[in-house]
Design a protein around this nucleic acid. Sequence first.
RNA 1: GUGGGUAUAGCUUAGUUGGUUAAAGCGCCAGUUUGUGGCACUGGAGACCGUCGGUUCGAAUCCGACUAUCCACCCCA
Length: 437
Amino acid sequence: MAVITRKVKGTEDILPGDSYKWQFVEDVMRKEAECFGFKEIRTPVFEHTELFNRGVGETTDVVQKEMYTFDTKGGESITLRPEGTAGAARAYLEHALHNDGLPIKAYYLLTCYRYEKAQAGRQREFHQFGMETYGAADPRADAEMICAANSVFDRLGIDNIRLELNSIGCKNCRKNYTAALKTYFEGYKDQLCETCLSRLDRNPMRILDCKSEICSGIAKNAPTVLEYICSDCSQHFDMVKSYLDAADVKYTVNPTIVRGLDYYTRTVFEFVTDSIGAQGTVCGGGRYDGLIEELGGQPTPSLGFAMGLERLLMVMQAQGIEIPKPETCDMYIAPLGEEAAKKAFVLVKSLREASLIAQTDIVGRALKPQMKYANKIGAKYSIVIGDDDLNANKAVVKKMDTHEQFEVPLDEGFIDKFLEIYISQNHKAVADSFAGE
RNA sequence: GUGGGUAUAGCUUAGUUGGUUAAAGCGCCAGUUUGUGGCACUGGAGACCGUCGGUUCGAAUCCGACUAUCCACCCCA
């Protein structure tokens, strides 16, 4: 096979037969975000590299080894976004959105790029849905954010997913905590795995995350963040939990959740599933009160989450959730001969003007294959137009599933007559479905 | 970046201890007499068996390298 027909590693095509699934999920997300009062923000696919260095954090794996970074002809360093938060924060600052009145609530639906080794649930180009709130320090904002993510899962009918919650404290209490952790882990220096040894200086909290049995065994008895966070942070966390309780959102507190991006403070959370392999984190988020300031703005308490669409769709598939297929064709018109073809061409035009899905032959097939095609695409109605029909200026509409037939005129009255049939038949279907229960 | 698995038509697979025209189902196209689909039957197109090299009289089958892909580590959504 020629090279040109091969997609780049870690990328996926979404084909015509599958795109409805994505549209369905995206639609649920948009609607849910809008119910919570969030408006869509669209930011560029690429940004100045510096934005991610500062926003996501120099020490993170994402920045250190996973970014698609390149120099432009003008000599600027540009990076394809590895996540959505930094770009949204940049736009918030650049357009001084705080002047619109706080809080600012925005959601996004976009592609992200990370140079990682592809595996199940992990692509190099992937889709994220995320929500961001700026200018809300109150724990209710945290609870609202988590509720929003939770509602999306509910709306999609996903239930084999759990919410894990933690607080990693503010900058101050984190300082004390990391110091305590360092002291603790230094006692096990000879047993820790190599990566954890390197984490010891840079970011000892990440050792808690380690999946190696030895490290996680040691980590089990390590001091937990919650013992070290200051009373403000602790109160904040309690409030978040009490609001989640009030909203009947189930969670478990998991002190090992630390998140890999530097900007997080206080509340962090993940929605995790066991049904799609190793990459089970479907949604991750939390509070990042220092981010806007880090990017040069006024201190602005902020928070948000992102969820991966690929993983979400995998979960839905694993759980056997059926996504409704959209209608593909209301009317197929099968003409016989040149003159009829022209008539059909005009008729589908007027059907389309009435917002119906209409098709006619564009490949020159015989009648039988045309009917086969009409059947395959799920046409609800069909019309065959031949010389007799043209002469009589009328034709027969056939309802494909029941074979019922109706006569329609082939002149200006066509659309009205067909709409009348279409509507009455659909009402009948609805009535039948009620009677069947 | 580290491991391990896999590689046969568009898809899912069969291919017996290496033996000559590589097989099936699904899908696709067409036909089963006159202007009508779903079912059934018949036929057709479609594979240099991932690539390159090696062993052999002979390789889809054995060996090696490469490439792709999958899974796991790592990381994260």
